[in-house]
Design a binder for these strands. Structure first.
Length: 277
DNA sequence: CACGAACCCTGGCTGC
DNA sequence: TGCAGCCAGGGTTCGT
């Protein structure tokens, strides 16, 4: 579910709710997520002050005043649901797996229907070596993500550009929605061989990626099925899709052809075969 | 090594 | 109404 803009939005909500506050209790209601939660997860975090919540790729990193950082991934259906103090929170459901409370009465529930998400703890000075963070590609919104950088990373890849952009080791944070949207804006076919995306095509693609991600963050992400912000509000960017989930609808660019859906490495791609080459 | 398919899990929707 | 089958924003593991 959540790609970079959704995770960024959730991080901002968590930062507002948690930064500067201390975890009081942490309740593990179900530990068999994507990987089993460490058995001592709660005791290692309880009493810790949350210094900063930030994002790397699609991971949420919660820095504390202790030696460890909490790592969270939302998988396809994960949510972080914030309930502010002074209000009776809604009753917990079967998919509220971990409940965090703070010393000022904030409640955050990690909820994940499909349990593809994960939580872990990692020594702050060894984050780079964490197996899930190791080898991740550059942040697409970072200053060092440029057309030359992208084409270098695509060099030698014979796989379709769609698959290459989904590979978090090439560039970190894109998912199925924003790859389709960025390729549409750059007028590049998802079927094009990755190593041919260089020069002028890369010069179109990089700004297209940056722009669509920035617009989506400004809209609070895209809500299709499960995704909500930490506050529970929906994102709005799904109303601005040009091609994603719009099979058969007219192309927003040429208005003549209709958006086509194809399956690549088991996942849907949406594009205009005329505008995108 | 690089690639694609299978798999992890639950729930919503479609079509018979 | 019921149920089988398909599909979903992700990522790892396995086989070729």
């Amino acid at each position: 579910m959540p790609e970079l803009p959704e995770v960024e939005t959730v991080c901002r909500g968590l930062a507002e709710a948690l930064e500067g506050h201390r975890f009081a209790t942490i309740e593990l209601r179900r530990g068999d997520l994507r990987w089993p939660l460490p058995a001592d997860f709660a005791e290692r975090l309880e009493g810790r002050l949350v210094r900063r919540v930030r994002r790397r790729a699609k991971y949420i990193l919660l820095e504390t005043d202790g030696a460890e950082v909490m790592l969270a991934h939302l998988g396809m259906s994960g949510k972080m649901l914030v309930e502010p103090p002074g209000r009776t929170p809604p009753p917990l459901g079967p998919h509220d797996h971990v409940i965090f409370t703070t010393d000022h009465g904030m409640r955050v529930a990690f909820n994940d229907v499909r349990r593809f998400g994960m939580l872990d703890l990692c020594a702050a000075d060894a984050l780079d070596q964490h197996p899930l963070l190791q080898g991740l590609g550059p942040e697409p919104l970072g200053n060092d993500f440029s057309a030359p950088v992208l084409s270098t990373r695509l060099a030698g890849k014979r796989t379709p550009i769609k698959a290459a952009l989904l590979d978090q080791h090439v560039v970190a944070g894109l998912g199925n929605i924003y790859v389709s949207e960025a390729l549409f804006r750059a007028r590049i076919s998802p079927r094009r061989q990755a190593n041919t995306v260089a020069g002028a095509r890369a010069e179109r693609l990089v700004p297209a990626i940056k722009l669509v991600l920035q617009e989506a963050i400004a809209a609070g992400g895209s809500s299709l099925r499960d995704y909500v912000q930490a506050s529970g509000e929906l994102g709005c960017f799904q109303h601005n899709f040009d091609v994603y989930d719009r099979e058969g609808e007219p192309c927003q660019n040429c208005q003549r052809n209709s958006v086509r859906r194809i399956v690549q490495s088991g996942r849907s791609s949406f594009y205009c075969p005329t505008c995108q080459r």
